[in-house]
Design a protein around this nucleic acid. Sequence first.
DNA 1: TCTGGGGTCCTAGGACCC
DNA 2: TCTGGGGTCCTAGGACCC
Length: 432
Amino acid sequence: MFGLVDCTNFYASCERVFRPELEGRAVVVLSNNDGCVIARSQEAKALGVRMGEPYFQVRELMERRGVVVCSSNYELYGDMSRRVMWYLQQVAPAVEVYSIDEAFLDLAGMTRHFDLASWAGDVRGAVRQRTGIPVCVGVAPTKTLAKLANRLAKQDAHQGAGSGVVVLDDEQQRREALGRVAVEDVWGVGGRSAAKLHAAGVRTAAELAGVGDAWARKNLGGVVGARLLCELRGFSCAGVVVEDEARKSLACTRSFGRPLTRWEDVAGAVATHAARAGEKLRRQGLAARLLTVFVETNRFAAAPPPHSFSAQLTLSGATDDTVSLTRAALKGLERAWRPGRTYVKAGVVLDGLERAGAAAQGTLFGDAGGPGPARGELMRALDALNGRYGSGTVRVAAAVPGPGKAEAWAMRREVKSPAFTTKWGELWEVRC
DNA sequence: TCTGGGGTCCTAGGACCC
DNA sequence: TCTGGGGTCCTAGGACCC
């Protein structure tokens, strides 16, 4: 059996933990650059604020209705997520941290020793008590069905019914559950597939489970569709993946605070992303063999259509060195760069990840041009300084704007809450 | 004026290799 | 007249997830 624990309205709930006056009020959290709505409290959902909606389109409505608006504060959400996941790891045999607010639990063998419904209820209560974050739990024989059970648990909770836990452990429960879920709400069915399914007259998860295998293979992405059907029918096709060793790629990408046309500005952003990517690698003990740089023009503009340009480079051996990564990134940018365009976004993506230092396969001519051991020391010093005095305190020169200039690429964040749990200067204050 | 960021998996064509 | 089979690397894009 699999469990799926999902935090309710996670970012909005995080904001509430340290600002209890927000309890009962409509709260939304915005994406970077205060661009889109990416999280909503139940009250905000009830007002009709949609997920992913551009902020500038709903700003007025929200001001009128007294909605509390927060810029995203990933430092806070990341730390709250770690607390939730840590607790789950204490109580479940194996945990897959599926996203910042969700985890799959491997409950194999537990059926014999526990009543899963009451066990899941206890977990739910404990997470709430220890972290302040509300969660729902779905339990079922496959991951896809556990997701579906979780959705039902949430649905019931919103209607003031149920315990926040749904367990599907026999055939009849499975059938009933499938009948209650619309096909577009099944995990793995996106907009495109939903349209095809509707056109074919398939409305519910139950009907989807009954379509022919050949049809699914043809219309739902080949083997992906076939697996989806299996899982809905109760045959597990995917296990719990415990740790991050399986990570295949890592990216740092950002929209600019405003559109950019000058090479120096975009290069500054790319160098900044490369440095952040290096930090992420070192924190996770990884090194990369491939680096991709991309830049994008405004995809919402009427013309011209092509909006993304990229270049991929093979690094000389796997590296986690910021200087090497930055050099490669700027070389990639030279290749991807089309002059005369207006860019709104840039990113650095690292692939071919391996454990740093493991095997350390060099090139034919050795790593004469590559960084030596002293550079490892330099990176450790860099990380230590930035950890202590704030990120960006020490940077490669390419990531620093010219003297007296501001970072042209800096993002907008007008209404950010404090880093309540990770910065001494921003801790909660208690007045007596 | 203003439209996120970080992932996974799959497909496909061209260049090049043996 | 007739033109193999099996790879890698690169670029690009589609579809899905949170």
